[in-house]
């Protein structure tokens, strides 16, 4: 099924699938890894803490090694998925819109037309500052579902994109 009964041929429209998306900065993987490792460490610490408290009571069966290995396997799986999903994070700025793709298990490609952007924000956590990265947040008038947040851009590039979009928005007004 296509839109043959409309005045524009669907084939002539600019195609999002032919767009070459640019991957985000490789160093962002380090941030993801560090964040994840912190979470895993906390989880494992929690298991040990739980074990420490429960050990004294005889009536509760708690096999530390089973639970620990289960948690470890989950963590490793989660880590592998995060690393694979990292490769899916990519973006592109077109003349009229911003495209951002992400996700391994649920892959999504979101496009926000520049004319619909309300404001742009560039934010940096201290880790991101250390690696010279930035997060670009794009806000539309819609519900939370239509806002974009592109993480792990090189700082300079984030700044440039922000400038471009800002001038574009102000130019339209």
């Amino acid at each position: 099924m296509n839109f043959t009964n409309l005045e524009i041929q669907a084939e002539d429209l600019p195609k999002v699938e032919e767009l070459v998306l640019k991957p985000i900065s490789k160093s962002y993987l380090k941030i993801i890894a560090l964040n994840k490792l912190a979470i895993y460490a906390a989880l494992i610490g929690l298991v040990f803490g739980f074990w420490y408290f429960i050990e004294k009571e005889d009536n509760i069966q708690f096999n530390l090694w089973y639970v620990l290995s289960a948690v470890l396997v989950l963590c490793i799986l989660n880590f592998i998925i995060s690393v694979l999903a990292f490769k899916k994070r990519a973006y592109a700025i077109r003349e009229h819109d911003v495209v951002y793709a992400k996700g391994l298990i649920v892959h999504s490609v979101t496009t926000v037309p520049i004319s619909r952007i309300q404001h742009v924000e560039e934010s940096r956590s201290w880790l991101a500052r250390y690696f010279g990265l930035a997060t670009l947040k794009i806000f539309t008038a819609g519900e939370a579902g239509s806002d974009l947040s592109i993480q792990g851009l090189p700082h300079l590039e984030a700044k440039q994109i922000k400038e471009v979009i800002s001038s574009e928005i102000n130019g339209n007004n």
């Binding site: 892959h107 979101t110 239509s146």
Partner: peptide, 27 residues
């Protein structure tokens, strides 16, 4: 306001996807 293409890893093999259309008040 924004358009989103969504595809899970299972849908990829079947060549199926969903489209989410957001306006300022509803998706």
């Amino acid at each position: 306001q924004a358009i989103k293409l969504k595809q899970t890893i299972f849908q990829k093999r079947r060549g199926i996807a969903s489209v989410v259309i957001s306006t300022a008040s509803k998706s």
